Amino acid sequence: MIVHVITNFSGIGGAEIMLSRLVKETVRDNTHVIISLMEISDVYVETLEHCHSYYSLKWNGFNTLLVIAKLRKLLRQLAPETIQCWMYHANALTSLSIIGLKQKPKVVWGIHHSLASPKDESISTKIALGLSKVLSKQPDAIVYCAYSSKQQHSDFGFRNANQQVIVNGVFLNKFQPNNALHQPTVIGFAGRYHKAKGYPYLFKAMGLLKNKNIIFKIAGGGASLDNPEVKALFERYQLDHKKVQLLDQISEMPAFYQSIDAFLMTSITEGFPNVLVEAMASGLPCISTDVGDAKYIVQDLGAIVPPRNAQALADAILAYVAKSNAEKIALKQATRQRIEQNFCIEKISEQYKAVWSI
């Protein structure tokens, strides 16, 4: 039995998505239980159907000691062979909950966060980070989702004899290439409205290209004129509604990828950007800022530019648009092939199973 302890299983973040995919892919070989310290969302009902059982401990910060006691009792009852943790708070609270247990399960920490700027983290995350640094020798292994994240946490002071990187994977059948090219060229962006996603640089780059024959599709929670800050950016650069389509949160990402020619990521910080893998699985060349593992994912099958540099983003977009149709189609095929060879969920799940069996 594999028990997964995750800080929260109600959002649509990289750790939650990867846990969901991993359970679905390995259900034939392992019995899975999910324990969310906070909440569990109906978004993951299909994943939960593959689980032996699942629990929500309603952690809110103030009831930490009670939640640790609940978690300890649950783990004693379940008696799992292995506990796979997901995110800082789950890592730390799980390690605290098993102190003194007669039969200790194998514990694997999972870190799905960039530590590019520790000083900018929330107070709660800073506390969890400090505690995790102290406890980092205790787990049997630490799995990072990004090479950049492993280096950042080692620099921060995480110490463990078995630290490794297992990148996030995708179901290849969910994301299919579309070899059709749109006219005019359609550039897509997907990311919630958040400081980390670099919206000011996205809008400035679109402003620099507003007189070009390019359409932008912008998806993500808050990417709407109902958002005053987005509306201000839209008006500042005098953008055209026909050329810049604000789609807000969308549920069908595969269809979104099918509707564009290339993918744009303007983040100023990332760990392992899942959207780049999904976009490339959909046969999309990616233009990305040099954050987290973006360069490792994209390699020479797109463009990597410095973060916070709208002119560099605009120049990279123009360079893509200038390519011939034959060059664009060849890029589509090469990007898909890279994901098939390196980021398919089948290969990634085998790496997790190898860690669980140590």
Rank of each mutant, 00 (worst) to 15 (best):
D140I: 06
D140V: 02
D140H: 12
A141D: 13
A141E: 07
I142H: 14
V143R: 05
V143T: 09
Y144F: 15
Y144S: 05
Y144L: 11
Y147E: 12
Y147K: 13
S148C: 10
S149E: 14
S149M: 09
K150D: 05
K150G: 01
Q151M: 13
H153Q: 11
H153L: 15
D155Q: 09
F156M: 10
F156H: 09
F156R: 11
N160A: 06
N160E: 04
A161C: 07
A161V: 04
A161Y: 00
N162S: 10
Q164M: 15
V165E: 01
I166H: 06
I166P: 05
N168C: 11
F171I: 09
F175K: 09
Q176R: 08
N178Q: 07
N178L: 02
N179I: 04
N179R: 07
A180N: 12
L181Y: 01
H182Y: 02
H182T: 02
P184L: 04
P184E: 01
V186C: 02
I187C: 00
G188P: 11
A190D: 02
R192V: 01
R192I: 01
K195Q: 00
A196P: 03
G198P: 08
Y199N: 05
Y199P: 03
P200R: 03
F203E: 00
G207H: 13
K210E: 05
K210H: 11
K210P: 11
N211W: 13
N211Q: 15
N211R: 13
N211S: 14
N213S: 14
N213R: 07
I215K: 14
F216N: 04
F216K: 08
K217W: 11
A219T: 08
A219D: 10
G220Y: 09
G221P: 00
G221M: 03
G222K: 02
G222T: 05
G222P: 00
